[in-house]
Amino acid sequence: MSELIKNFTRELPDWKPRVRPVNLDEATEAQLDALKVTPSNTKVSDYVLTLAHDVESLKIRSPLFNAIMYDKGGLKRSERELGAIGASVLNRCIYCNAVHMNRHAQLEKDTSVTDSILADGENAKLSSRDQAIFNFSLKLSSCPPKVGKEDLIGLEEAGLNIEEILDLILSTALFGWANRLMHILGDPVKLENNDS
């Protein structure tokens, strides 16, 4: 049985669903369409198969996710990842946090930011711009959200323009969504060795 991961990590985990994913052999046409399953592409993750229980949401989610995280202009990629990390720390989504810490480290070719977050969590000490981004993400992710005008001013003073702030709001908000799927519907587990 796969071992559950209980602490934040940058190592990519696997994900074990808490509900039964859609069985591809029993999938409806709408589900197969949403999953983009073709005879040459039948490899679908358990996570996506789980979300296939709600086809209409699944079909919108991927283009929306990609637009928020990857569209050109505005906030740079690694800083959108930092917004995702702040949300994932606050919501304690170990899976999302690992994936996006890993991506941040790859994009920055540096682990110092994520090392600090791994060591100190919400109290991590970062450079002034990263600190402003991380703190904003933590506050926006709270319930209720705890952001105010002073936080916007803080982001401006840290050097973010309005387009960048909008992208930070979007990437942080998006992980209020993603965390509540990943962390609620399944568990992060250690990747098993795959010799194939």
Binding site: S57, A173, R180, L181, I184
Partner: peptide, 16 residues
């Protein structure tokens, strides 16, 4: 969960 998750996103987008 999709309903709850989407609302978490929209509420935070609006708050921002």
């Amino acid at each position: 969960s999709e309903l709850n998750s989407f609302m978490a996103y929209q509420i935070r987008l609006i708050a921002g």
